[in-house]
Design a protein around this nucleic acid. Structure first.
Lengths: 223, 223
DNA sequence: AAACATTTGTCCGTATGTATA
DNA sequence: ATATACATACGGACAAATGTT
């Protein structure tokens, strides 16, 4: 019996990893609310495992800043404030700005085409009024550039921030935010900068692509 | 009996925290070499605790990128390459650049004076040929600016990168690198930018203050 | 003030999985 | 291919610490 060649090798997923992913999702999408108490025994029963993998997952989430543990007292989902948006986005802006700058000098035309295709999906999702799909396409676009930059430290920080930003949107907007067409244009401009190997312009556009939505979001929430 | 007012409240430090700090130190200063195998049972005995807190500490170190765990196989100190310097420093540069930019608008004169005092200690250490003290003063200077920026995400990433950069120096140079007087001048220029609330200049100088040593270090190692 | 209830922290035994002979 | 040795993953019980009644 022929085995599909590109069959994903059965990644051994530990109970700890499953618990980590599940809890991260629940915290990100607001199922577990900010400030909510987390008892490991309870979560262990809910996920059908012992306390050990739950504890380990919680400790990792604490390091990621999604959970706060008070030894001997309790463990809670970390709170998040409106003001955090003014810390999350500028940090992401400089990181992705660096990613764009680094990517500009090593990106190949095939990758630029792929990015253009993703941007088209992004535009379609916006036009069709599908905010969730739009958000995913936008993240895909940014993540591909981060990957191309080939900087593991940058990638790690970016991934962590993306989780926090996603949570921010879900907690304060109850749904993915509507992306604007301005973002589509900025993406296109960025690709043009890539084509002429203009790393400074690419970085500047990338920063703008994050700081503009920040301001829009900030005004939306303050209503 | 009067109790010292600013007596540090006896922080309850768990075995896991102690193990984490100790292992992080050992990895950073090169006591535990890149690629070295880490057996939890062995470390547990060495630190006088059970395997549980060791395991937990190792998982946190893995998330920080200092350790790599291969389930069912082994756990090793993550390797580090010369090329990592070209990833570490630019990332730190944009983060600290943002810190300087943010700090510039909210820093108070008293803090600028404290920074000037730290910079003087930095200069003295260089002149006296004390590279370790110089490195510590330099870190103190940068960390104070990061603190002033008041961005927890930024602080977290910066602290993590600082560990990796320190490790890089110890692994490849076997000792703290000699800081140059150029750095002292850049620090002074930065403080001048703070005083006139010039956040753009502050950010630019900060980036330069990290990218210049990167290039010097890179050339030194390639010898 | 002291004992209690709750929750986290630690220990160690066992099961499971991987790589090697 | 099978067995064996080794290290990790998980589970459950116990200990310690905190805040409260």
């Amino acid at each position: 019996m022929p085995i599909p060649s590109n069959y994903a090798k059965p990644i051994r997923t530990s109970a700890k990893d499953r618990a980590f992913s599940q809890l991260q999702r629940w915290i990100t999408d607001g199922t577990l609310e900010p400030g909510e108490k987390l008892t490991d025994a309870e979560l262990a029963e809910a996920l059908g495992v012992s306390r050990t993998p739950i504890r380990e997952a919680l400790q990792l989430l604490e390091m990621q800043g999604l959970v706060e543990m008070h030894p001997g007292v309790d463990t809670r989902v970390k709170k998040i404030e409106k003001n955090d948006i003014l810390k999350l986005y500028p940090t992401m802006a400089v990181l992705h700005g660096l990613a764009a700058e680094a990517a500009a000098t090593i990106i190949i035309s095939e990758q630029i085409e792929q990015l253009a295709a993703i941007n088209m999906q992004f535009a379609k999702a916006i036009e069709a009024g599908q905010p969730y799909q739009a958000m995913e396409a936008d993240e895909l676009f940014h993540n591909m550039i981060v990957d191309i930059a080939n900087n593991s430290y940058l990638s790690s920080f970016s991934a962590s921030l993306q989780i926090h930003i996603r949570r921010f949107k879900y907690v304060f907007l109850k749904r993915p935010v509507n992306a604007t067409e301005a973002s589509v244009q900025e993406h296109a401009d960025m690709l043009a900068a890539f084509e002429r190997r203009d790393h400074e312009a690419a970085a500047a556009i990338m920063k703008q692509n994050l700081l503009r939505p920040m301001n829009e979001l900030y005004e939306t929430i303050e209503l």
